[in-house]
Structure formats: structure tokens, C-alpha cells
Amino acid sequence: MLNALEVFTTVAVGLMVGVEFAVAFVVNPILDALPDDSAVLGRAHGGRMLGALMPFWYMGSLALTAVWAVAAWQRPGTGLVVIAEGLLILSVIMSLLLLVPINNRGKTWTPENRPEDWKEQQNRWDRYHYVRVAVIVAAFALLVAALA
């Protein structure tokens, strides 16, 4: 049963990392290459869509990792799981304090109502997101190492 939990948790976190990595290094660069009206509409739609999904994914990953840490307490590799949990907590705190406020504004923007500094706000979101991606990649790597 513990093995199934470990694998399921690692896959769930790995998929989350893949989505966030793709947003940072594939989707947003594609949207940014489009004309401004299309870029703002695409980012707004992405903000609404992923903004509805990702909180559940992050919280689910936190819960699964916590259950793994408790279930495997005093087994080899549990320290790595606990550190991964700390990194996932950090990613949630970063999200709530830095990324969500920008996303909540951006997901309502249209070409008609976007603020003058919309590109600067999106660039700030991107910079915070790169850091968050690095944090969750590190958490994922620790979970994979804990399996070994």
C-alpha cells in the first residue's frame, strides 16, 4: 500500500511540475509572440482555466506528500519527503502571496480594459513563476530520490 502511495504521489507531483514547466517555457512564450490583443486574451483564458484547477492540484500534492511522510516515518528516504513537503508548502505560499493576486487581475483583462502596465504585471508573474517552477522541480526530484 505504501508503494502505491509513493508512486501515485510522485506521478501527481510530476504531472503538476510538467504543467507548470510547460506554462513557463512553452505556453506563455507562444502567447507572448502573438499580437497584444491575442496575448492578453490567451493569458486571461489560461489564468481562468488553470486558476480553477491548480489550487486543487497543489493542495492534493501537499496532502499526498504529508500522508507519505507520516506513513513512511522512520524509513529511509522519509527526510527527503519531509523536505519536499516543505518546498511544496513554500510553493503554495509563493502562489498565494505573489502569483494569485496578479493572476486574479489578469484573468479579467480584455483588450478594452487591460491596464497600461499589463505587460509589466505579466512579466512580474512570469519571474515569480520561474522561481515557483524551480521550487516544485526540486520537490519532485526529492520525491523521486526518496523512492530510490
Rank of each mutant, 00 (worst) to 15 (best):
D36W: 01
A66N: 05
L34R: 13
G14T: 12
T10S: 07
M54G: 09
T78G: 09
V137T: 12
L147F: 08
G79L: 08
M54Q: 13
S91M: 04
G47E: 06
S95L: 14
F56S: 11
V92C: 01
A63G: 06
V144S: 05
V26N: 04
E6Y: 07
A72F: 00
G106A: 14
A66S: 05
L62G: 07
V144R: 14
V144E: 09
M59D: 02
A22M: 10
P101L: 03
L142H: 14
V17E: 00
A24W: 00
W57V: 15
P76Q: 13
M16V: 07
R105H: 03
V7H: 03
A146G: 11
Y58K: 10
A71L: 00
S91R: 08
Y128R: 06
A33L: 03
D37N: 12
A24Q: 01
P115H: 11
R75T: 15
P55V: 08
S38A: 13
L62K: 11
E120G: 02
L15V: 14
V26I: 11
D117E: 09
V137Q: 08
L31Q: 00
A138K: 05
R114A: 14
W73T: 09
K119I: 09
F140P: 02
E85C: 14
S61F: 04
P76S: 14
A138S: 10
L142Q: 15
A71D: 00
L143F: 07
R48F: 06
V100A: 01
V13P: 04
R127F: 06
V70A: 11
A33W: 06
G46I: 05
L143R: 10
